[in-house]
């Protein structure tokens, strides 16, 4: 314990001030429900308060807090996945699948030519479109996609956490999330002006 711990205990509101919004936005992407994301932030800050000694200053304060938050969020998802599985309403999405491919399995709207995608990465517009497209995914697909692509969870962990019954279903759901994102980006970011 040193100066850092003293400073932190003296003014816990500072974490909330500096990192509250970032923590909230991080949690919201994964749990979707604002009230739940708020609770996660609160629980995290309370836990952090009791664990200040564990912060050694090797990472930034925010990274440390997000690390605790991640535990809280994954715990929550694991618990709620057991009580109420994410659901595998694969049939609900058949409308989409039918939209992407015709009866013979060919693209109904062949993927276009994305011009200079590397340059696009520097444009704020592209990132705004990507965020908007992520937002538009159905809830269960977005949670799944975020945990897989952003947090790097593996197939078995995801099945356990979200209560998905088979690997094949999981892979099909991930594929729908990716195809939907791709299509949304093509329409909103890469369509010829």
């Amino acid at each position: 314990m040193g100066e850092l711990a003293d400073a932190v205990t003296a003014d816990p509101g500072r974490w909330l001030e500096l990192h509250g919004d970032a923590m909230y936005a991080w949690a919201l992407l994964r749990v979707r429900v604002p009230a739940l994301a708020e609770d996660m932030v609160q629980e995290t800050l309370l836990a952090a308060l009791g664990a200040v000694g564990g912060f050694r200053g090797q990472s930034s304060e925010r990274t440390w807090l997000i690390g605790i938050l991640k535990h809280k969020v994954l715990d929550h998802l694991r618990r709620s996945g057991r009580e109420q599985p994410l659901g595998e309403h694969l049939d609900e999405d058949t409308g989409h699948i039918a939209g992407w491919f015709d009866e013979t399995g060919h693209w109904s709207q062949p993927p276009g030519n994305w011009a200079e995608p590397e340059r696009v990465l520097e444009q704020e517009q592209f990132w705004a479109a990507l965020s908007a497209c992520l937002e538009r995914l159905p809830e269960r697909l977005r949670t799944l996609y975020a945990l897989r692509e952003l947090d790097g969870l593996e197939t078995d962990e995801l099945m356990d956490m979200l209560g998905i019954s088979s690997r094949n279903n999981l892979w099909v759901m991930l594929s729908r999330a990716r195809l939907q994102l791709r299509e949304c980006l093509e329409v909103n970011s890469f369509s010829p002006a």
Binding site: D21, W26, L28, L45, A146
Partner: peptide
């Protein structure tokens, strides 16, 4: 930026969390 862009805690949530910390 692995987060919902621009999402912020609203004032009442912020206040509630502040009180629980105190």
């Amino acid at each position: 930026e692995r987060a919902v862009p621009g999402a912020t805690l609203d004032a009442s949530a912020r206040e509630r969390i502040r009180r629980s910390l105190e």
